[in-house]
Amino acid sequence: MTIKWAELAIVAIATIFSAGTVVLLYGLGVRLAAVAADRRPKGALQNAVSKACFGLCGLAVVVGVYLIVPYFH
């Protein structure tokens, strides 16, 4: 019997890393949006960075879809 420990470890690391990235980006987006809302009418910078974070997070999800669809490979 061969248990693929290496694969198991890779799956675990990949899971934690990618989920962590998505949550980190989205969390930063949420925080900066809240900061910007508090500083209104100032806070344009925070607002822009917040948007960028959401955008990057969306990109991460798109990469996920790309991985799902074998047609793209």
Binding site: T15, G20, V23
Partner: peptide, 30 residues
Amino acid sequence: IAGFSAWLCTRLAYGITARRTVEGAKLHQG
């Protein structure tokens, strides 16, 4: 695996979005 990842992410999400003033009062978190 999923449980540990979700635990970590939840801590992360709450850690990042927690906002308090210097006095410790909660701010809008969204």
